[in-house]
Design a protein around this nucleic acid. Structure first.
Lengths: 165, 165
DNA sequence: TGCGCGCCTTCCCATCATGGGAAGGTCAAT
DNA sequence: ATTGACCTTCCCATGATGGGAAGGCGCGCA
């Protein structure tokens, strides 16, 4: 009856690619679309509205799992704005943490680059900086795992054997 | 003859996990390690030095493909520091661009969060902000693809048919 | 000699969000 | 009826990393 669009039109209207709309449906982020007899998906304005919501949340960097929660709050008339705000603040923290981390890396590198003449000669503080001392950068959430505890396992120089290289 | 380590020791010494060392070797980022008769990989101090170099470059956010180039410059006595500097500056630009993008998203969201009471009531400017106007954010390199040109294909309200929902 | 534990090997799968492309069916206008 | 744009599903790729399985190796200790 009402205005009905196929996936391409819904994609254009919402800003979410058809590929992604299908994907969001497959992971249950958005409900399964109605189908025409032909198998084509059908979208009405409400569907498009929801997709636009997802699109804007993605534009703000929300990961899909958090958007799943946001969609739940969106459609829940009994939600408290406190829940939404808490979710948003958590996300803001993560965004700023990542931004800080990136900027920190850029700053360290800028320091090395500033010390580099950038001429035709091979001497280069940047290369030396990579070769030598560890980067002080206080890594963010994505903390470096430290591979494994060294502990017991030690050097063990191999006695005269097949020789290497 | 010299000091020889197996992959776990090289991992501890370089800060690159054994898993990653094997991966770097598989994609040709680092040369194939020597093997003992048993099949175990062998690493000498030079190998560990190279792995440490990779590790520091990763810590500074260099993608592996750029590290591949860096390793080439590192081992090239005829390199010009200008080449290295250019690579570094390009990378710095990218890092700052990403940092800006993240911070921009955080700022927009902060604006919405500031307007949200965060109390027990459902009214929430954050949800409304996601629902309504598009986020002005000037996206960085990772530009939003715009799904597809709308062009010809238009609405086409389906005339009285099998009815939906 | 043999046991056992911790290391090594390869191989496959998962992450996160997105896109590319193939093979084949549908729709609407000519 | 033909054509071209659209739709369908399915598989694969990205980038860097990790998890885990199945089976072999190394070495200390009884």
């Amino acid at each position: 009856m009402g205005i009905v669009m196929n996936i391409g039109q819904a994609a254009d209207a919402s800003g979410v690619s058809a590929k992604m709309i299908r994907h969001y449906e497959s992971i249950g982020l958005v409900p399964q679309a109605d189908r025409r007899d032909s198998g084509y998906r059908d979208y009405d304005p409400e569907d498009v509205h929801r997709l636009s919501f997802v699109r804007r949340a993605r534009d703000l960097g929300f990961p899909l799992e958090r958007i799943r929660v946001l969609l739940g709050l969106w459609g829940d008339p009994t939600r408290s704005s406190a829940e939404v705000k808490a979710l948003a603040l958590t996300h803001i923290e993560e965004l700023e943490e990542k931004a800080r981390h990136l900027q920190e890396m850029a700053d360290v590198l800028r320091g090395l680059a500033d010390a580099c003449d950038g001429d035709g000669r091979p001497h280069c503080p940047i290369i030396e900086g990579l070769e030598a001392r560890s980067v002080p950068a206080s890594s963010p959430s994505g903390e470096r795992p430290i591979s494994r505890s060294s502990s017991t396992r030690l050097p063990s120089r191999r006695s005269p054997s097949p020789g290497r290289r």
